[in-house]
Write a protein that binds this DNA or RNA. Structure first.
Lengths: 214, 214
DNA sequence: GCGCGGTAAGTTACCAGGAAGTCATATCAA
DNA sequence: TTGATATGACTTCCTGGTAACTTACCGCGC
């Protein structure tokens, strides 16, 4: 009675690289859903259709798995924001272009954002390097954009710039999170909404978001 | 040889109401520090100098203890914001007065804010009522202030108002959190900083924050 | 003044369950 | 056969929660 359906052990012919990618995708979702601290490796294994020891074979520990997820997510997000930064827009237009790019980049893997902003990820020698890399890339971008804004306003207090960076980061987070909570909204609609919101606070603005086809 | 120091069991002459207040204060700190999910009742008991079962005698469960902390924190914050709302300021001035009041109200118990924004608190019949009360009070305030802003800007899309509320809440959170991370800053300094930050984005503003004595 | 019982305040020792991580083992391709 | 892919069963530890017990205070009859 060794039916194919009953075959429970042994190789399933999936190469390690493929399996790792699949596990990272599932783990990212679960981590983002429950928060790292409350997510269980068992659940990740169940949802990926494999067993827990395989995860430990490949990633060493729960934190090692998280490190892989964070590396993927951090690269995705930071690459995108650096790309939009290179477009050369300044001030408000730069902010809107960043948001637009972010919505598009996040669409295929919305869990990345929640994961990068998960307050329950612990410190530790395994996570610190990857988190530091991501955070320093983002801090450089923010300091760039926000610093320019503050210089324009004639405010050169570094603590003010620091606080303003925190505010801008948080606005970004609020908009992305709102979007994640309204999945029916397309990136295009969301970008237009952002333009309206900025206009409500700052007065009329005009920017033409790039990359819209058709 | 029944020395006073060796007396480990039995009453210590502390009335229940006092003990409950003390436990709530300690629990609030620990919950805010670690997040509800990662905080342990044992640690709270140790830091309060009592034993775990006493907490269960008084609060029934970990969630019951959290409910008491949230009721305290929610009342503190919502009362304060409602008070500043009644001052009758509008628009930007209202925002700054709210922030100023919030900084002053939070100073003696900074943990309240982190607790109310802790993403790891679960739902459940014990927490939902107290959280719903707090959130509906805050939502009413936000909808009031943000709604006015949106009407002024001629934007009557309810989804826009909803998103803008999320953004404003998040800005509030960012500023308070930045302040909690810089404990040397007094509420007065922080309020002045907020005025500068708003000015950097919106252009010159003038408001006189009330309640400054001396 | 003084035993005395009821009750509030408080503790030690324990249980049940869940999650991280490990080990011996099984299957299959080359 | 060997090595990579894979698993069931296990240990270990931590945490929420409980049972049983101890100590101190307080009102009351005498």
């Amino acid at each position: 009675m060794t039916s194919t359906a009953a075959r429970l052990t042994g190789t399933k012919g999936v190469a390690r690289a493929d399996r790792e990618q699949q596990i990272v995708a599932v783990a990212g979702e679960v981590f983002a859903e429950r928060g790292f601290a409350l997510a269980s490796v068992d659940e990740i294994a169940r949802r990926a259709g494999i067993s827990k020891p395989l995860i430990y074979n490949y990633f060493g520990s729960k934190e090692g798995l998280l490190a892989a997820c964070l590396a993927y997510a951090g690269t995705l997000v930071a690459d995108e924001i650096e790309r939009t930064a290179r477009l050369g827009e300044v001030g408000l237009a730069r902010a809107l272009v960043s948001l637009d790019g972010l919505f598009r980049a996040l669409e295929p893997a919305p869990w990345t954002w929640r994961l990068l902003n998960d307050p329950t990820v612990p410190g530790g020698p395994e996570l610190d390097p990857v988190l530091a890399t991501y955070r320093s890339r983002m801090a450089a971008l923010s300091a760039d954009g926000v610093g320019e804004l503050m210089r324009l306003a004639g405010d050169d207090d570094p603590a003010d710039t620091d606080a303003m960076t925190a505010v801008w980061t948080s606005v970004l987070d609020a908009l992305v999170t709102w979007w994640l909570d309204h999945p029916a909204e397309t990136p295009e609609q969301m970008s237009r909404r952002c333009v309206r919101l900025f206009a409500a606070v700052l007065g009329p603005v005009d920017v033409d978001l790039p990359g819209r086809s058709g």
